[in-house]
Nucleic acid binder design. Structure first.
Lengths: 201, 201, 201, 201
DNA sequence: GATGAATGAGTATTCATTCAT
DNA sequence: GATGAATGAATACTCATTCAT
């Protein structure tokens, strides 16, 4: 069982990497077992189906991101920084994005989509908590926090996932964030410094 | 030529309906020709490939939506109403959404995705114009209009496309819209009346 | 009729060029009509079928080659030179061979094969005549001329059509020709000068 | 592994027979699996593609022929007989030729062609060796042996593969062989006895 | 725990040919 | 003479899944 668990982790990691780089639909079970060096039967010993593998891969990914986000939540950094850090902890890490990123974006729509709701479900509560913290500190002031926070995530996803955005996009994003959370103008300005600007194609 | 064009329109309409209701991936070329009552060869006489059919279907859809939006643009209704009407003219019509909507959402990710950027490309300029109109009228006040307008579309897509939103979502959306465009509080309140509320799942 | 004949000649020439360069199997009727700028129906007005087009193309080709060979036959050049010239007049001209030659050789087996027998049928009688001339002149001495002449063609086809032969191939070919026709050693030596040597791959 | 290998041999044998009798292009994968009584997937479990199957079939055939030829090489029979036997061991066996031979010749050009070079590559070295043996014995006398030997194969292929040749063809072939190898007249006469004469069509 | 041989439904695409206008 | 819309049989190949060993 111990051993089996470990093996499964390995397989999940391999599947994860392949799904990200080549896309779920473009990765066949044969591809996975070849990469893993195991037999067909072995794969189906560990996974019910390919789709369920995807599910597990996504859960694994979100779990890791949630873990990271929780660290940030309890760190002793200013609330606005926490917001930015948590949001970005739920973005695919640059290495993953870039390997064969071009392909992924066009082709890996399914995975992207399946991930989205689960990601919101994990991220919204955490961000909600931070915003509440900010309200207590008097930095933010707003109601309907989960809904606001979700919008933040949705917009940041649109802007940053594609990897093609302009300085104006960032400006508007910052402005929107401040207004959405009822913060003073300038509160989120530091975000600009975190971002290496890229031109939207 | 006349004849051919008409036939192609019919086929596009059929394909459109099938892609929407069953999903692109779940609609085989065989399904389409059976529904259309034509031979395999006839399909490939009109379309280069299944994927190109999708492209044409999307273009056709966006073109129709753009047409509708342009009508609104030049109508003599208040600017805020124009904004709302144009945004909603770029949403899939309720009939289409509902037929077998449940399936569609999960499975039709590809079409959804391919549509998105084309839709933004068509909608952003029109909305930008309306916002400028609003600025001239002194109702709105903001810079970076295209970027702001895109965010509006992104967020409205997230909230309304799924068809599961709460009153709070609408409240926040209205608030965000007003703040994003630099309008007075209450300017977009009328939107609440346009929407039949639904509970987020 | 006049006009129609001309049109057909054009089509044949186009088909010929396409069959040679892309191969018969790789050239669709659609390809031909596109290149020719005519409609499907028009093609089938002039040709019974694609296969029959091939037949006509080959006949046209052989007819042209035969024409050339006949010129040589009646020219006033030494008999050995005639032999060499006629043989080479029945080889595909270098331009045709080279355009996309690599492809052609592998893919255009069918055309090559269909051509072969017709080519022999046309070439053997002409060469036979030249050899007889040579015998009369006392240069050659042999029986079963048509059979010998065919062997010459077969071997020259193997060696020269592929375009990859060595000096040794040429030496042996010359030796064989002389012995097959009962000529003195050295009679065909001049052939060496006609050939730009290439290494067999 | 044992099992798999055996199965593959069976499939190769079936494909071989079908390619020979019906032609490669006229044998669909469906035909093969039906004949073999296996599923589509099984076919593609053993073969990468139909074309690769052809390749393997040819290799298998040539390997068998080479095996037979090697037996002859080391047998204790006179050198001229060896030459004839080896050449004929590289010809398709009569049963194969005849089954639906008429069809095969016209249609199976591709297989024939793919076979040719591989066959020469296998046969030339063996024949070269025999000729060297003959030279040592003082029966033959010539240089450029591989080139001469190839010509023998080319010509014998043209004459005997089609199955339509006359006594005169055989006479000339014998004469040519003797002269090509520098043998005394009469050395290869015995060949006449090996051949059931057929009229060239 | 692990294997790998076997499955078979599913799919997009090609292309020579016909025929009413 | 010429068109081009319509045909439909044919075909190679994919891939998630099963199961006896």
């Amino acid at each position: 069982m111990r051993k089996g668990e470990k093996r499964k982790q390995e397989l999940l990691t391999i599947a994860y990497r392949m799904f990200i780089t080549r896309g779920y639909e473009n990765t066949s079970v044969d591809d996975i077992i070849e990469e893993a060096g195991i037999a067909k039967g072995t794969y189906y010993y560990y996974f019910e189906s390919k789709e369920q593998t995807l599910e597990e891969v996504i859960d694994m990914m979100i779990k890791a991101e949630t873990e990271a986000a929780k660290q940030i939540l309890s760190a002793s950094i200013p609330v606005p920084q926490k917001i930015a850090a948590i949001i970005s902890s739920f973005r695919p890490s640059p290495e993953e994005q870039s390997i064969e990123g071009a392909l992924m974006q066009t082709e890996n729509t399914l995975m992207h989509d399946k991930t989205k709701e689960k990601l919101y479900a994990a991220a919204v509560p955490l961000l909600t908590e931070v915003v509440k913290e900010g309200i207590k500190e008097g930095i933010f002031s707003c109601n309907n926090i989960p809904e606001r926070v979700r919008m933040l995530l949705v917009v940041s996803g649109d802007i940053f996932d594609e990897g093609r955005f302009t300085g104006r996009d960032v400006d508007v994003f910052i402005d929107m964030t401040e207004k959405l959370l009822g913060a003073e103008a300038g509160t989120m300005d530091f975000v600009r410094g975190l971002i290496r600007k890229q031109k939207r194609k």
